Structure formats: structure tokens, C-alpha cells
Amino acid sequence: MEYSPPPLFKQGPSAIARLIIFVALALGLLICDARYRKLEALRQVIGIGLYPLQRVALAPRDLVRNISGFFVTLNTLRADNQELKTRNLKLALQALQAVQLGSENAHLRALLQFEQRETMSAVLAEIQYDAHDPFTQKVVIDRGLRQGIQAGAPVVNDEGVIGQVTRVYPLQAEVTLLTDKDQAVPVQLVRTGVRSIIYGTPRGDLLELRYIPVSTDIQVDDQLVTSGLDGVFPPGLPVAKVLRVDRQDGAEFARVICVPYTPVRGARQLLVLHYEDPPPLELNDAAHNGLKNPAKATGDNSEAKAKASANTVPTEPTKRKNIKPPISAKSPQQNSTAPDTTNKDAR
């Protein structure tokens, strides 16, 4: 007689064996993804497959936002409109000044034969939702590879730096916020020009400047901007303000705590920046010839003067023994006395 359990109650491998198998499989996938990047294609496929489900899940939230935005009061719209007009006028004035400075910069670089700086372009994006990992400060935006988003691109808003793109999907991208503990940005102190690197904190609300010597001139409310030394963030973007400076006795470095210049969690629309190749620099003939031959750049008269000055030999004193002074035809007295003077000098 067979005492084996019926097929319905067969359990297969034990729980410990299944635990070991799944742990080994998880470790293998982690190593393949972190070290060899073998799962990027699979991640792209999964992202494309889950995108329709994400849009369906976000549809109620978007509907509520649209309805609430439709019933905004008229006074609020008027105030916002007036504020936008004022800001538009200020930005228009700054744009005019920037155009003038840009043309002057391009002209000076052409004269000095400097390489043209790379230009920046921006892609407007909107935050869809926060990342699922509770231990990181990341958000997901609605732009991806098809919209030209690049991995490592800086993300900003109208006030300052927000974060950096760390992972790109075909239709979405993952942005690591500035306050993430693994995010680092090269910065520069506006008041003194001191350069350093600012890091996020584990709490995800403040920033920290590390390895700042105690003797460094840094004060509360000092502004920090991007230095541009990493080649990723363009220089001059506002990053943070100094909140607290702790200088302990006997410590070699000061502890500098900063607060982001703009709330990284309060933004909804963002700008993703990326570099574009500059157009070829074409020098005009006058500037190019002026660099190689200064005489040509200043005109024909200047060229003739330069040649005349180059061919002219400076005259030496007439009291040398072998050089006779010039004889003028207008004064016969000088013609008669000139040889006597020369003979006297020769003697």
C-alpha cells in the first residue's frame, strides 16, 4: 500500500532550500546589474510595458488637478497675471543685456581666436511621481530618450538647481534630487570665490560642505553657485545658502550646513539641460588678417607707416670718424666749412 500524499498536497522543495535559491538568484541579478550592466535592456522593456499602467493609475490624480485648477478664483488669476507681467519685463531687460554681452563675448573670442563655448539647450519636463525607494531622494519625469534626455544632464527650475538625471527610459527619466545623500555638485562661494563640493545628507532636507578648513572665510547666508569644473553643470547656477558654520576647537575642518536655494520638493515643472556642439567659428577677414599682420588690420596708411618705421635705421651721432654729416645745398657757408670740420674730427 502506498502512503505518499496525493498530488494536491505535495509541497516540493523545503522552505530553506527555496530561500537559498531565491537569495542566490537575487544576488546574481544585483551583481549583473551593478557591475556588468546586463539588465539595462530588460529594464527598458519593463519600463515601456508599465508605462500605460502608470498613466492609467495617474489619471484620477490628473483629473482632480485639472478640476481644481479650473475652479481657481479670478483674483488669484489676476494677481498671478500681474506678477508674470512684471517678471516678463524684468526677464526681457535681462535678455537684451545678455544678447549684447553675448555678441561682445563672441567678437572678443573671434579676435583672440578662443574656442567657442558650448551652448545649452533645455527640455521642459513635469514631475509624475516620486521614486519607490524610500531611502533615496528621486523623482520620475515625463520625458525620456525620445525627447532627447541624456543621462547625467542637470535639472533646474526658474530659481536654481534641482538635481541630475541618473537613469533614462524611452518615455521617462529618473532624477536624483540635490538633497540625496549620494548626490555631489561642485560649487563656488560667490563672496570669496572658494571652491568646494556640496553633498546631500541622509535626512534629505539639508546639504553639507565637506573638507572646509577652519580658517576659510565663510559666513552664514553666503550664497553658493555651481563652479562648472565638472563639465556637467553650467557655472553660475544658484545651489544653496549657508545655514550654519560649526568650528570646533582642535578640529581641522569646519562643519558647514547649507539649505537648498530653491525647495527641491516644491517644484512641478523642471528644465532638463544638455550641451550642444557649438557652430564652427568663422573669423572675418579683417579680424583674421589683423591677428596675423597688424599692419593690414589698421589700413593702408598704417601699413605704409609700419613698413617705413621697420626700414628706417636710427641715425647715429655725426661725430663718428667715418660718417660725414649731410651737406645742405641752401647754405654755401656750410658746404665750405663741412669738410674742415670732418678733417678736424678725423685728425
Rank of each mutant, 00 (worst) to 15 (best):
T192A: 05
G193D: 14
V194P: 00
R195I: 12
S196Q: 09
S196F: 15
I197D: 14
I197C: 02
I198D: 02
I198E: 04
I198Y: 03
Y199F: 14
G200F: 10
T201E: 15
T201G: 01
T201R: 09
P202C: 10
R203Q: 15
R203E: 13
G204V: 03
G204P: 00
D205L: 01
L206R: 08
L207T: 01
E208V: 05
R210D: 12
Y211W: 13
I212F: 06
I212Q: 12
V214R: 06
V214Y: 02
V214N: 06
S215T: 09
S215C: 02
T216V: 14
D217E: 14
I218G: 00
I218T: 01
I218E: 01
Q219I: 12
Q219D: 14
Q219V: 14
V220G: 01
V220D: 10
V220N: 08
D222M: 09
Q223V: 15
Q223S: 05
Q223D: 11
Q223M: 11
Q223A: 12
L224Q: 03
L224H: 02
L224Y: 06
V225T: 12
T226G: 03
S227V: 06
G228A: 06
G228V: 10
G228R: 08
G228F: 12
G228D: 14
G228S: 15
L229N: 09
L229A: 11
L229T: 11
L229I: 12
D230T: 04
D230P: 00
G231Q: 08
V232E: 15
V232C: 03
F233Y: 15
F233P: 01
F233G: 02
F233R: 02
P234W: 14
P235M: 09
P235E: 11
P235D: 08
G236I: 15
G236Q: 11
G236H: 09
P238S: 07
P238T: 07
V239G: 03
V239A: 09
V239P: 01
A240C: 08
A240H: 05
K241H: 13
V242T: 10
V242M: 11
L243V: 00
R244M: 06
V245Y: 09
V245G: 03
D246W: 02
R247G: 02
Q248Y: 04
Q248V: 08
Q248F: 06
D249W: 04
D249I: 13
